[in-house]
């Protein structure tokens, strides 16, 4: 049986992990490769690296990082942030990433989804969508959620699927950082209107939140950052609890 995936997300700036990472037993908590190894051994099903470096000349640093992660780990991982062209995707995949994610670039130029999917196959093209409700309507946001667009979350989800996305990583900006749980209603709707897998992101604070999102929506995976980085939730413990709640996981 296909299992639900638990995915830690690492924000990367200039080749280092940012956003308070506080792993016990790691001499250098900022080294994404050490973290990746630790997660890989600790039961994570997949990893997401989000490069938030501002400048394009840090590209080489990112590619080196991708290679090092691929060298040290034996679970799949996705790389996002600043990917705009076929060449960008080619370099990241060739270095050892399994999937790439695009966000703003897809909103600004939706045809890039078709193009990437034609060249690389849809299975490695994840479209990341940041959204939050404005006057009750879920609107897609850009630049890490700072800039609102007029694009409706649900219409956009359907469009990216039609254009050849293989997966949607939906982050609710409303829930992100609150630790009050995932955006269940929106996730339920997104995961029901598309046939491609959906990764839930934003709001994970407790094991109950994970049980909730898998029980109440059709999402295929749940992603979180700080609860894993700070070891508030250990992935193996979480998976055992999910299993006890009749949610299929790989243990």
């Amino acid at each position: 049986m296909l299992t639900k995936r638990i995915i830690p997300c690492l924000d990367i700036k200039d080749g280092r992990t940012v956003k308070g990472v506080n792993f016990v037993g790691l001499r250098d908590a900022g080294d994404p490769v050490l973290l990746a190894e630790k997660y890989s051994e600790g039961g994570a099903d997949e990893l997401v690296f989000l490069d938030i470096s501002a400048s394009a000349d840090k590209r080489k640093t990112l590619i080196d990082l991708v290679e090092n992660v691929a060298r040290k780990t034996n679970i799949p991982f996705t790389v996002g942030g600043g990917i705009r062209t076929v060449k960008d995707v080619y370099q990241v995949l060739r270095a050892g990433a399994d999937k790439i994610s695009i966000n703003s670039a897809a909103v600004k130029n939706p045809k890039i989804i078709n193009e990437l999917s034609n060249v690389f196959g849809n299975q490695c093209i994840t479209v990341a969508i940041d959204a939050k409700p404005i006057n009750g309507d879920w609107k897609v946001h850009l630049v890490g959620g700072r800039i609102a667009t007029a694009i409706d979350l649900f219409e956009w989800s359907k469009e990216v699927e039609d254009r050849g996305a293989g997966e949607i990583l939906f982050t609710s900006m409303k829930n992100d950082g609150t630790k009050n749980g995932f955006a269940i209603d929106a996730l339920k709707r997104v995961s029901e209107i598309v046939q491609i897998p959906v990764i839930a992101s934003g709001g994970a604070g407790s094991t109950e939140d994970f049980i909730d999102v898998f029980h109440k929506t059709e999402v295929s995976a749940a992603l979180a950052a700080s609860v894993f980085h700070y070891e508030e939730i250990k992935i193996l413990d979480l998976k055992n609890i999910l299993k006890n709640n009749k949610i299929e996981v790989r243990i």
Partner: peptide, 12 residues
């Protein structure tokens, strides 16, 4: 079929 496609993830 009606399941999610692509088939992505860990299976037995």
């Amino acid at each position: 079929h009606d399941l999610k496609i692509p088939h992505i993830g860990w299976n037995q």
